[in-house]
């Protein structure tokens, strides 16, 4: 209660003596921040009954959000992407969860810019961003990684599904028609390279990105509009081998049932 009163007193004082107090909003020179936020179509006006501190907090929140966002596509930017990737590595290392990183690059993007202008290019980037975002689950993270390159982090994505997921994304983009002007629509394709973080092992984001990037390069050099995923070194256990490996489990179960009444069930391998 006392705190609230004090707080109200300070805001009151700030409002009354704007120029002499170090707390005054004016001396904080918020113009640049306001201009940035305004550009992002955010309401930057202080509401009539809004306390200064709340207003400042709103501006800061807005700036924080801005600092993680790509202005053109509205996707996460590279900064945000990197921090999510960092966190994913911790999760994978400790839990062994399968996390897939995809790098996606628009095929022959330069020629779109060259023949239809940069505005058309921007429109393509925005449309592809929207299209990609629609392909994903809420838990996934998508970011604009660079010029015409996007990155997607797919947590909890089993290795057996990785290729199917990436192919679905590739096909969705290829089937999408992008209107760039009233008279012109474009269809573009993307190449995708992907890599899983090594499970149970602490890797680095650089190594992980490098592996996905290698696969993206492979997809490009194979003729674009395709998916290449890094093949993990392990798990080269064929279905036939697996079938044989688990023979004992079935026999074990049968043995348990057969020998259930006996005190010390003994089972010799046949």
């Amino acid at each position: 209660m006392i705190l609230t009163l004090q707080y109200q007193f300070i805001t009151f004082a700030v409002a009354r003596i704007p120029d002499s107090s170090p707390f005054s909003l004016h001396s904080l020179k918020l113009d640049d921040a306001c201009a940035l936020l305004q550009h992002d179509a955010q309401n930057i006006e202080q509401e009539a009954d809004e306390p200064d501190a709340a207003y400042l907090q709103r501006l800061i929140d807005g700036l924080c959000e801005l600092s993680l966002k790509d202005p053109l596509t509205g996707l996460n930017n590279r900064r945000h992407f990197c921090s999510v990737l960092e966190r994913s590595i911790d999760i994978v290392a400790r839990s062994g969860e399968s996390v897939l990183l995809l790098l996606l690059d628009i095929d022959r993007f330069k020629s779109i810019n060259d023949s239809h202008g940069h505005l058309a290019g921007d429109q393509v980037l925005r449309e592809i961003a929207r299209c990609l975002a629609r392909c994903l689950r809420p838990m996934d993270t998508i970011a604009r990684y660079g010029g015409e390159e996007f990155a997607i982090i797919l947590p909890n994505c089993q290795p057996v599904f990785g290729l199917a997921v990436a192919e679905r994304i590739r096909k969705t983009v290829a089937a999408h028609t992008i209107p760039v002007s009233p008279l012109l629509s474009l269809q573009v394709t993307i190449s995708i390279g992907g890599a899983y973080a090594p499970e149970w092992v602490r890797s680095t984001t650089d190594l992980w990105i490098e592996r996905a990037d290698k696969q993206l390069y492979r997809a490009k050099s194979r003729g674009r509009d395709q998916v290449c995923l890094d093949q993990p070194r392990e798990l080269s256990v064929s279905a036939e081998e697996k079938g044989l490996l688990f023979g004992h489990l079935l026999m074990d179960e049968a043995g348990t049932r057969e020998n259930a009444p006996s005190d010390a069930p003994k089972w010799e391998n046949a």
Binding site: L244, L245, G247, H248, M251, D252, P265, K266, W267, N269
Partner: peptide, 13 residues
């Protein structure tokens, strides 16, 4: 979970 299952697993592998 069962005595002897380790040897059985080893033989299987």
């Amino acid at each position: 979970t069962r005595p002897g299952s380790g040897q059985a697993i080893t033989n299987q592998l």
